[in-house]
Simulated assay, not measured.
Amino acid sequence: MNSPNFSLQEDLQVLGELLHNAAAATQLGSYLQRIQTAPSRDQLNKWLEQVTGYLQALNDFKLLDGEQTILLRELVTRAHMRSPLR
């Protein structure tokens, strides 16, 4: 699942299947899109920090299990790999 060949659309579909909370899926989808299309390295770093914090908050509130956490981090990595700024 860590190949950069997956598109944002494919990742959003996986995200929707992975999370049972629609609001969390929408928020994480927004982060994935922002990471992929960040206009500057500073913005890219900002979005990466924010999504990391968001995932940590979901973990802290026990809204994710271990497997979901791993898969979500892989989706973030793929979005980062699609960014021309990486």
Rank of each mutant, 00 (worst) to 15 (best):
K62S: 09
S40V: 02
L55C: 10
T52G: 11
F6C: 00
N5W: 07
Y31M: 03
L18R: 11
L15G: 13
Q68H: 02
Q27V: 11
R82F: 00
L8D: 01
L71K: 13
Q56C: 01
G16M: 07
L64H: 12
L15I: 12
T37V: 02
T52Q: 12
L44K: 06
A57C: 00
D65Q: 09
H80C: 01
G16H: 14
L85D: 05
L8R: 14
Q27K: 10
L15F: 08
E67A: 15
T69K: 14
I35V: 04
L75A: 06
L15H: 14
Y31R: 01
P84V: 06
F61M: 10
P39D: 05
L75D: 04
M1W: 03
S7N: 03
N5M: 08
M1S: 07
L63K: 12
H20D: 10
V76M: 11
D11A: 12
W47C: 01
I35K: 02
N59S: 08
A23L: 10
T26R: 06
P84G: 03
A57G: 00
Q13C: 01
Q50G: 03
T77L: 13
T77E: 09
L28F: 08
M81Q: 15
Y54A: 05
A25S: 15
Q68T: 03
D42G: 00
E67K: 13
F6G: 00
S7I: 05
Y54G: 00
N5H: 13
S40C: 09
D60M: 05
L15K: 10
Q68N: 07
V51I: 06
Q36N: 01
L71T: 06
D65N: 15
R73D: 09
L28S: 07
Q27P: 00
T69Q: 14
L63A: 14
A22F: 13
P84M: 04
D65V: 06
D42R: 15
I70V: 14
I70L: 14
W47Q: 08
L15A: 11
T26W: 04
H80F: 07
H80W: 08
K62I: 06
F61N: 05
P4V: 07
L32T: 05
L58Q: 08
N2K: 09
L12T: 08
E67G: 00
P39Y: 01
L63Q: 13
L55Q: 10
E49A: 15
S83L: 04
G53L: 14
S30D: 12
S83H: 03
T69V: 03
W47P: 00
K46L: 14
L63M: 15
K46E: 10
D42E: 13
D60E: 11
V14S: 04
L64I: 09
Q33I: 03
A23M: 06
A38G: 05
S83M: 03
L75I: 11
G66R: 15
A57H: 15
H20L: 09
L12P: 01
A24W: 11
M81D: 09
M1Q: 10
L58R: 07
I35N: 01
L48C: 04
A24S: 12
N45H: 06
Q13F: 08
A22S: 12
